[in-house]
Design a protein around this nucleic acid. Structure first.
Length: 235
DNA sequence: CATAGGATTTGCT
DNA sequence: GCAAATCCTATGC
């Protein structure tokens, strides 16, 4: 894994080797990619500003036009165009008129898909994240709640629509790493512990109908406090 | 061109 | 537990 990030002020020489995930990592079926993303670090670097880091703990996989729960279900549109592009880019969309959600474009060659990041455990620059999330006059929320839920991920990491299409493998405002700020070492082999991964139906896709609404495409690291909503018993 | 509703969150009842 | 916030995409006439 190549070491990058100096252009954004990252101390690349500290700790174990660390660097952006590269293109090949994303070029696989979204169901696999979703599981592999659990435990990875997401890094948001604002020009001349703060740098926020967190650990991905919950994701959902969305497929191509045949997936009736996916934004791609009606084919390519202006909104979802990024989903149909190259793996390793950020697909960002607005929901309910106010929240922005972060997706990571993946897929095997010739396929379409993306992984929705539903929850992140904040690891770095907590004050910057709290500045964007805590309400003045109200009690600071628990760390695990700061980026719990797809809309909260967008708010906590200052991910706006202008980041739609950003290449996550290139120097820029947003990227992913294997072990950046991995304080306890538990993210070293993110996809190698199936028993530590919970699996269940995706959230908020009832409209998709049988076979798609209940497809087991939601994944989370078992026991993580930042998980947005409970899984069905036995997950 | 009009309109329904959404891969959600929050605060109030 | 429920409804408001809020806007733009998708769809149908």
């Amino acid at each position: 894994v190549s070491v990058v990030g100096a252009e954004h002020g990252v101390d690349a020489g500290r700790g174990p080797p660390s660097g952006r995930l590269e293109r090949e990592f994303f070029a696989r079926p979204v169901e696999q990619l979703a599981m592999a993303l659990l435990g990875m670090s997401v890094v948001r670097s604002r020009a001349g500003g703060d740098r926020s880091v967190g650990r991905i703990v919950e994701v959902e996989a969305y497929g191509g036009p045949d997936d009736r729960a996916s934004h791609a279900r009606s084919g390519r549109t202006r909104r979802n165009a990024t989903m149909f592009g190259e793996p390793g880019h950020a697909y960002i969309y607005r929901v309910y008129g106010l929240h922005t959600c972060l997706n990571i474009v993946g897929n095997a060659p010739g396929s379409v898909g993306a992984v929705l990041v539903r929850a992140v455990m904040p690891l770095g620059d907590l004050s910057a994240i709290r500045r964007r999330r805590d309400r003045p006059g109200r009690r600071p929320m628990p760390e695990a709640r700061l980026a719990s839920g797809p809309g909260n991920v967008g708010a906590a990491f200052d991910i706006g629509l202008e980041l739609d299409g950003v290449d996550l493998t290139a120097a820029g405002p947003l990227w992913l790493e294997l072990d950046e700020n991995d304080i306890d070492g538990s993210a070293v082999e993110p996809a190698s512990r199936p028993s530590d991964v919970m699996r269940g139906p995706r959230i908020g896709v009832e409209y998709a109908g049988p076979g798609w609404a209940d497809a087991q495409l939601r994944f989370a690291l078992r026991g993580e406090p930042a998980i947005s909503r409970p899984f069905p018993p036995g997950s």
